[in-house]
Amino acid sequence: MLPVRGLIRAVKQNPNSLKYLQLNLLRHGSYFTSKPVGDPSKYTDYEITQNPEEWKYVERLFVKPRIPTPKPKDSYPSGWTPQTVDPEKCTWFVHRNKAHMMPVYLDISERGMRRLTKIKKVDGDIWAFYKELKPWLEMVNRGKILGIKVNEVQQEILIHGDHVNQCRRFLLDRGF
């Protein structure tokens, strides 16, 4: 066994003995984290430029702090459209999310066996929305009875099964 206790006792009695124990511990860092060595004048020379024309190329690389609001256009080839409905005339309203997309999502759980369609951000009378959505969805699905849950507190509606595209069509037709 090593005489650890004896060493501790010796150091406690005579702290000067520590300097004989100390080793030159070097941390070999990377080139980029190392300190500059020697005189800075020995480094390569450079010029400092402040050209607004060149700076434009730098500025375009930065991420925008906010998602921009889409400007109105003549046509939207991708199928995306802005909301056209007047919120004051509606009993219920489905907001867009912060990326200006429709808040209709597919929840897959139980290793892919359970699929739920979730419509979020439903404002106003959520029950009126439910009464309008349910017959339309069942008509589209050829009379199939669908399990629909209304979560009034979370302002969302859960539909059993994958009906994301149908719900998006339903909302799009009504201008949401």
């Binding site: 390569t44 430029t49 730098v58 690389l61």
Partner: peptide, 26 residues
């Protein structure tokens, strides 16, 4: 790598300046 920015330049985005090497070999 970037449009309009040459390799070898150092971008100081804090002071909005670009440092360019003068050495011909570099």
């Amino acid at each position: 790598i970037f449009y309009g920015l040459e390799p070898g330049w150092v971008i100081n985005h804090h002071e909005k300046v670009i440092l360019k090497p003068k050495d011909n070999e570099l």
